[in-house]
Write a protein that binds this DNA or RNA. Structure first.
Lengths: 264, 264
DNA sequence: ATTAACTCTGTACGCAGTACGTTGTACCAC
DNA sequence: GTGGTACAACGTACTGCGTACAGAGTTAAT
């Protein structure tokens, strides 16, 4: 019952970036002397799909090269003829997930609806692929999915009176918020999952020590507010509420930029 | 030069939570029959400090039980008499880091200054301990450091006309923003670090393929805005700018809550 | 003096990513 | 045909991780 599984962030993009870009755009490998040797039994997309299926249903820590290989009926090392390594596989998974995102057209609608739609699309992405919230995107894979997503999302922010730089800044801010929410939600889910006790049991088990130690005199505000917040939402942390509250804040913040000069 | 180092998120809190709480509060182990056996050569704090030093200077992926043990001159398994496991060690490290945060007293100052101070304190935490931004805090370790931090930060938001629940919500929103910024900054740093090429070299290496593939007709907004953003800050992503911009947004958002009714 | 609790140690297991060398297959030039 | 060659797939093996487990040594209570 240890079950420590560390849920790694698994930074992407390790090896030769040019090779990774070629893979992302499905660019043929220069084809100097095309197609010798035995036929390939799999495809990059089969590998990506198998890996994505595992990560979706069992989490990033269950996603191992050995496991992907087993699901595809090959030996682990075979995967390395399709993909340079695990980091690049994650890049490809992420770009594929981006590419598959449904993109609602909100042209003509009021800007709050448009921004909300963007947030919801990304929230849905992280709901379908919880691992996507936890892979790091330093130097994000500039694949077709990423580009389509970026184009779509910028378009939704176009024509609101923002400068180009502000559009990029606002989008980054919004996406960071949604991703942080998704990460927090995933963390909360994970905490619930791999602990044999639920929130109530946990509280009961720790109440004696906490009662002794969480003194109302030393932590007056914390005790007061913590109790109020805990009572308001059912538990100590409510991801849905945090998302709803935060999205309203982000919208208000954008309003201060967008409505400036128009008498906000 | 592979150097894939996955920068794990390393979820905290795996084993018996009651034991973890005891460790956090340095609660004696029930002492039924106190102190038999040989004298301890180390202390929990020595283990925490050694681990923190490693994580600070070399990153979370360099933080292994073996490494901590080596730095302390003991064999790896010895650590397990001080700490139930690596997850709990991370909890303790985080709470200790919280406890050591300098907390500036901003009573009486305008609320924007107070909130900004909170953000800066947390930004400084993540600057000193970059790993802290990447460890997950589902069911955060309710240690003395965490509580002192929570009390301090709520106090800064007290008396602004917010309800208790709103105070908690706003604080969570602010902290999530700072943490997300720190994560992004750490990602950017990591990408620069473990790639032999800098941004310019990377661009030059990939320019041919990107030029062929990033069509202005298919991605008009993306190309336009991406160019503008890239030109405005020096590179593709500027963590400092993102933080500054985002903090202004968060403050504007809070203003909409705080100044409501007072003629905002 | 004996015993029991406790610290520290050494060895070992399972699992990860993946380097490396081999085997077998299919196309190309002859 | 037939040999050469490029390539896919495989098997083995290495390093390093967290930590279970069993033993050896050390101290305080009996």
């Amino acid at each position: 019952m240890r079950e420590d599984d560390p849920v790694p962030t698994e930074r992407t993009s390790s090896g030769d970036p040019a090779r990774t870009l070629q893979l992302l755009w499905r660019d043929a490998p220069a084809a100097p002397d095309r197609r010798r040797g035995p036929r390939r039994g799999l495809s990059i997309d089969a590998v990506i799909d198998a890996a994505t299926a595992i990560a979706d249903t069992e989490g990033l820590d269950a996603l191992t090269m050995r496991r992907v290989a087993k699901d595809l009926g090959v030996v682990p090392m075979t995967l390395y003829t399709y993909v340079p390594g695990k980091a690049e596989l994650l890049d490809l998974m992420l770009d594929a997930a981006y590419a598959r995102m449904p993109r609602t057209d909100t042209t003509g609608r009021p800007w709050r609806q448009r921004v909300t739609a963007l947030a919801e699309e990304n929230k849905a992405l992280f709901a379908r692929h919880p691992w996507a919230a936890t892979v790091s995107t330093a130097r994000p894979p500039l694949g077709p999915g990423q580009m389509a997503k970026y184009e779509h999302e910028l378009s939704a922010l176009d024509g609101l009176g923002l400068t180009d730089v502000e559009m990029d800044d606002c989008l980054a801010h919004l996406l960071a918020f949604v991703q942080a929410s998704a990460r927090a939600a995933a963390d909360a889910r994970a905490a619930r999952h791999d602990s044999p006790m639920n929130d109530q049991e946990w509280w009961e088990a720790n109440a004696p020590l906490l009662a002794r130690v969480l003194d109302e005199k030393t932590y007056p505000t914390a005790v007061r507010v913590g109790a109020a917040a805990g009572a308001a939402h059912g538990s100590a942390y409510d991801p849905d509420h945090a998302y709803a509250f935060g999205l309203e804040r982000v919208l208000d913040a954008f309003a201060a930029l967008i409505d400036r000069g128009t008498g906000g």
